[in-house]
Nucleic acid binder design. Structure first.
Lengths: 221, 221
DNA sequence: GCGCTTATGCCACTCAGTGGCATAACTGTG
DNA sequence: CACAGTTATGCCACTGAGTGGCATAAGCGC
């Protein structure tokens, strides 16, 4: 690994060893997104990716649990920040769903790494084209939701753990986020963090209306 | 394959060949659920399962797309019936979410095969214990939701396709179903189709309340 | 410089999943 | 009942993801 110039995030005051690990991880993510986008997720073998980064396959699996994981790192970073924020956010007498929404906004605000929005876009496009990536992403969001639920039950005075409402509130935020991600990806708007946040806000605002949305049969012709 | 006695569903007036295929498929599902439950999903190799059913691995993959698929057949049958029902159900002036809910109930009513509820229970427990199964199940539900969405847009006079409300309504039904599945599995109630339907009804009824659910900090101690 | 810890590389292995081709089983015709 | 056409199956070899074990090298504290 003769990586001379540190591309970004040359965060000094971390031990050399840790910096190297961070850089290797980031190089793996960037290269993976690039190769997968170029030739498709299934068109690139792990051996090829490892060769490109000059890392052994064994080492790859010490950084990521699966081939899918490396391509979903940007989204996972966001949700990890979300969970962290949720640990300290004040409920403040408003609906839990709003509190969750604010935690998600705060997490997005913390995604300051260069080109994060672009990487999320690539991740999303890859997932849309690759069933196994989509499945992994869904599963990760599901797990994150359960973790968020556990945090809520630990911190808030929610009465009964068999009341489905809290869980449904969490799932609604996740649904709104996925919805926002798709409209953000497809839409003509700006593909920035702020643009994504706006879509999330719209999707959350549409939640109540989705409960009562009514339609008739489409007239023939 | 010296399968002498047809276990169930000896649906005559189907050609012999088709009956055999149905039986092989059903035997694969039953044996898989049994073995996976006994020794864990990862504790059983495909070769072992194929040996037990006396079928070549090559043939297995002509029936199922993956090792996970064979264990999720019961749930997939339900959602397929749901999509079929949605093709002809009348919107009838009430919220789309209610129409979706009724389609799901109708689909459950059609799951008359012997022991269906029991198989769903095994599937759910396996998925809860096996990340890759959980991921596959989530992905399948996601795909089903998109298919349902396409049907809705085709049949109903929903104006704008970029309005997130329809999609969110579908996702809410899916969330409610998953929620119901968990409480049904964990709860003390009867593990029958009717019991599951009741849980689904409760979860759907809880959807509006989840939007406004409020809570304060848990008092220390 | 010198040990101690920790990351990495290498090798062999298991197992899911696929493609190709030969063979067996079912189908409906005469 | 034989015959030809169709379709499911079996077998074999192969790719590629993921794992375990052990030797080695790189960073770290002294």
């Amino acid at each position: 690994m003769s990586n001379a110039l540190p591309p970004r995030d040359h965060d000094d005051r971390l031990p050399l060893r840790e910096r190297k690990k961070l850089r290797t991880r980031q190089t793996l993510v960037d290269t993976a997104l690039e190769l997968f986008t170029e030739r498709g997720f299934n068109g690139v073998t792990l051996d090829e990716l490892c060769d490109a980064v000059e890392v052994s396959k064994r080492t790859f699996f010490r950084y990521f649990a699966s081939k899918e994981d490396v391509a979903m790192a940007p989204t996972q970073d966001l949700w990890r920040a979300f969970l962290e924020d949720l640990e300290t956010r004040e409920p403040g007498g408003r609906p839990v769903l709003e509190m969750l929404q604010e935690a998600l906004f705060a997490a997005m605000d913390r995604m300051t790494a260069d080109g994060w929005a672009h990487r999320v876009l690539l991740t999303r496009q890859l997932a849309a084209a690759t069933p196994s990536m989509d499945a992994h992403g869904l599963h990760f969001c599901h797990d994150t939701g359960r973790a968020a639920l556990a945090t809520l039950y630990r911190r808030l005075d929610l009465a009964t753990p068999d009341d489905p409402r809290t869980r449904l509130a969490v799932d609604m935020l996740v649904a709104a986020f996925h919805c926002a991600l798709d409209t953000w990806t497809a839409g003509p708007g700006t593909l920035t963090r702020a643009g994504l946040a706006a879509h999330v806000r719209d999707a959350c605002a549409a939640l109540p209306g989705s409960l009562t949305l009514t339609a008739g049969l489409r007239p023939p012709g």
